[in-house]
Nucleic acid binder design. Structure first.
Lengths: 202, 202, 202, 202
DNA sequence: AATGAATGAGCGTTCATTCAT
DNA sequence: CATGAATGAACGCTCATTCAT
């Protein structure tokens, strides 16, 4: 029974979190009120403060929740024994897939979390740095197998891969690319992988 | 004399704009008050409203000012008759140089303008799209000269180049790379160019 | 068994009341939350509402509890057949002793109850007035025995005695006098009694 | 002209302060909103924050304003060369007169300021202590002229005088005495002076 | 009886914006 | 042009109180 209650509480918490994703995605962090989140979640706004200390912590939690999935997937990929090109493809696929599956979450991750001043420090940066670290490791391993050419810094390369993925996601988010169009998605994916692995040059 | 006054007015306007750059860079668009900008500019806050309709227009103007230089440089590069690798290097150099020269402006461009909801539409996006269009044209021309391999979409490639540059600038802005270190700058530049043109693969 | 339960209930009630004294003394009536009182009492905050209608009634009850002892002692003193100087001394002693014994209760009585707007009417004032009435009676009796000089209004004198005691207690509460110092206590006591009975004049 | 503006600003500030006195007196510090003060002053509530940092500072200022008059009068009295009985009478008169002249200010001083937790420290206590110090000095001088009997501590005596005055004012404030009744006022005054100087004893 | 999730009135405070001087 | 007093919408947050369990 205690568990049932805990679960109910956890459900509520998750409901508010989901509502926050929706609302942040729609109006941005600064453009929405706690009351909007509460309304979207179908609860009184006071309740939000039972589950989250304040608005900022709500955003932090949205991030933490979303990031967890991404970084665990990344860790898997790093360990896998497949060619670099496939790994890079998998990272891009995963990001694109995540966006197709829950565009609003990605929207918040891409447009809000990463750019909120409060997030420019501590935990958040660490999370991004961890992801880059993992990806850098992944590239280092590929180098050990002779898959990476000389003169390429693995960690800067990881950065660049993320930059590429992020800007393509942004293009999807902002509507320059259509996530519903398989052609758009395939083209974006292959261009990202091809450039990252083989460059644009002939 | 009318001109003298106009010039004085223009100076004032520029002073406020400069102050806005400083303050936006320091505390972010949402984290600062018009009064902060005015104080930084050394004027009464009411005066800001003589030169700019409102806070948002101030941010728009900051962007427009900063972007002008960048896009005119881009247009030059597009027209120049040099190999693709050099053009890409020039774009990266220009971005990095701009950051070294006026890190606060870049900070605002990178961390504020691009991510403010209000900017996710209208003029701002057009500006970014123009830049990508120009860069895409540049790549198309290179393709015409046989410098670009098949299967690469020029405009997505332009996106990716911008994503790469942006994330490296972000690394500088957030302190993961040191803009004062020539080694860091050179490594970032060469990695960006090498990956973009030749990929990481061996 | 009904009694056992009643007793348990009464214990709970008393525990909450004691907790209220502690918390009110520490942070003031307006400066604390029901939740603070509950936590101090080691119960869930909802339970407070089983025993007290609301926060204000809690304060009323704290007062009533504390005042009961004081006024019954006062009634005893009134009846006793001892010289006025001794009676006054006993009142002062009693107040000081009460403070040494339970400074937090006195703190609440002195700093909170007497000054809460809600207490400026009804029951509370009556209680104070009763005390003053009793003390006035006490002085009247002394007058009947020739111990009070002409031109002194007994009830105003009672007021003044209370004012003197209260301000000395305040001095203890606020730390200007040290309740642990026997010298301070003795001096305060004798000064109060001497002035009240004999005045400062030579 | 600068002066005219300063004066206008000072007038506004004073108007808000006066309004605060009225409203605090009526509903208590905790029982009123900034908006009430503003309405009473006939200004927008935002304006209150131009002149006072926050609600607490407003109360502090109300106190400071009211106390200034009282303590300067006290300093005069201390210096005067009149018998102790007259000085004590003058202190009591001044306090009563102040109450008759501006009962709401006194109400705030007596019922709010002295009892607000935030005021139980720093500046406020110092002010009270200063007043007691001055009055203690006054009694010490009287002692030097042989007007005070042995065994009386001047500073405790000063405390007690203040306690007596305060409680009588409280009686006026709470309606147990009628400040409009000359008889009540005269009786209260003479009782206070007589007890303080000569005691109740015969 | 006991718990604490849920509610929502209420309020302090901020700050963009206006406008009289 | 320049100033900054004045306005008031807006919002985050608190916390007393209720009530289902």
């Amino acid at each position: 029974m205690g568990e049932a209650i805990d679960t109910a509480a956890a459900d509520r918490r998750r409901a508010i979190l989901r509502a926050a994703v929706v609302v942040f995605a729609e109006k941005g962090y600064h453009g929405c009120r706690i009351a909007d989140v509460a309304q979207e979640a179908g609860v009184a706004y006071g309740l939000v403060y039972h589950y989250f200390r304040n608005k900022e912590e709500l955003l932090h939690s949205v991030f933490a929740e979303g990031w967890k999935r991404f970084s665990s997937r990344l860790a898997e990929l790093t360990a896998a024994e497949v060619p670099l090109r496939e790994k890079v493809g998998a990272i891009v696929d995963f990001a694109f897939e995540a966006y197709r599956h829950d565009p609003r979450s990605m929207r918040v991750l891409i447009l809000e979390v990463a750019r909120t001043p409060a997030f420019r420090d501590s935990a958040k940066r660490t999370a991004f740095e961890d992801a880059i670290g993992l990806t850098g490791d992944l590239i280092e391993r590929a180098r050990a197998r002779g898959e990476v050419r000389a003169g390429i810094d693995s960690y800067l390369a990881a950065c660049i891969l993320f930059g590429a993925v992020e800007i393509l996601l942004t293009a999807f988010v902002l509507g320059q690319l259509d996530p519903e169009s398989d052609a758009d998605v395939a083209r974006a994916r292959s261009t990202a992988v091809e450039i990252f692995v083989g460059g644009v040059g002939s």
